[in-house]
Design a protein around this nucleic acid. Structure first.
Lengths: 222, 222
DNA sequence: CGCACGCTACGACAAAAGTCAGGTTCACGT
DNA sequence: ACGTGAACCTGACTTTTGTCGTAGCGTGCG
């Protein structure tokens, strides 16, 4: 019983807690797929056919504007699910696009299978409630950011979030930051420089050093 | 059994579908309160003590910036609930402020009562899932609006949404629109005028007339 | 009637955000 | 070594957004 699919299921907290009986059922309907880096997993506006859970790799969830600008809603890693919202509303369309950041493996469930699973399993429905709740909070923060803060303020917040202590080690390109902050590369570049000029940051190859968390916190408002 | 509380419960779809037994339980723990127009119902950042359901009136849910600017997240009417999210996350703080728009009556449940109610009642938890799902979609749209559209575009979308056919009858002040659109009064004023100049709107006392829904749809992108 | 108040109009201005073009650096593969 | 492309820097420029002060206009009320 510890084949590929079982291992995959174990990496997904939402599903791994299910009863042995439900798991057995699940094995019959779950499908495993992999995507190359950059591959489109689903397109916003399409009818919702399935829900996804990431086994390995990362996926970026985003919206596109008519002009082609992006806004990232979330970047998800192993164990997290996406496109789990539309099954619960009457007209089920994918609310956002998703693409693989790195080589990414997912489990998919047809919408109907997912819904009936949730119906019979209170634990699962509770887990999804918690998931939705935290996503609502996250989106609310994002809305506040976009509506009430300048790019500079958003960038400061973003860096504070990303930083592990004083160091942001993950390599972010300005373009990536831009789509997270709801703006464009050039503007991120300027904002970064202006924070550097203000003595709040230092940029070295491959990482960013926060010289003053307090200073950045202050930039946060406005 | 058809006292005040029963009537109140009946106006709330989320709760009215509960079993007679659960309802009885509910009657013991639900509290009725009323708020004058403009009264603050809850303040963002405070520890979450209770969840709310509107019996009559309206409530505006919003976030405040350090500078005092607002962003409205939702305006809710009878039957709808708010502050229902924090009970599902580990550290429960009110995610937003709420104030009564008109004279407003609410039922409140202590967080713990609400949670145990959800735990024992699958119908309720399903209903909340649906509620959360539609709120996630709504917030996602809001994020796209704020990140990817100009004020002009947002205003166009807003008016199209508000309009019943070609007429927006509800009296919106520019200030109210501004807090919905994540901007300030002056800017809404300018955007309105520019849409009027473009021949897409006419403004009469007490209402706004959309002269061309197609034209406004076009303004929608950007 | 006259006054206060809320809402709006308008113009001038400042700041922020977005756009564009040219040039630099650096990693990578041939 | 060389070319290529991605990422980034830079400055100039436009547009959008935000801010301010002043003024008009209607409604309601003493």
């Amino acid at each position: 019983m510890d084949d590929q699919l079982s291992q995959d299921l174990n990496t997904i907290p939402l599903l791994s807690g299910l009863s042995a009986r439900t798991l057995l059922q699940l094995r019959g309907v779950a499908l495993r797929r992999t995507y190359a880096p950059g591959a489109l997993i689903l397109l916003e506006g399409d009818p919702c056919a399935a829900v996804f859970f990431i086994v390995s790799g990362q996926a970026r969830i985003y919206r596109l504007s008519p002009q082609g600008r992006q806004q990232v809603l979330a970047t998800l890693g192993p164990g997290q699910g996406f496109n789990t919202v539309p099954p619960f509303v009457p007209e089920a369309f994918n609310p956002a696009s998703a693409e693989a950041v790195s080589e990414t493996a997912v489990l998919t469930l047809r919408k109907e299978d997912f819904v009936s699973l949730v119906r019979v399993c209170p634990d699962l429905s509770w887990a999804i409630l918690e998931d939705f709740a935290s996503r609502l909070l996250h989106l609310t923060d994002l809305v506040e950011d976009l509506a009430l803060r300048s790019v500079r303020g958003r960038l400061a917040r973003f860096l504070l979030e990303q930083a592990d202590g004083l160091y942001v080690t993950r390599q972010w390109t300005q373009d990536e930051m831009a789509v997270h902050l709801g703006t464009v590369r050039d503007v991120v570049g300027r904002a970064l420089r202006s924070l550097v000029d203000a003595g709040l940051l230092r940029i070295e190859r491959g990482r960013i050093i926060l010289l003053s968390r307090e200073g950045l916190e202050a930039e946060t408002d406005s």
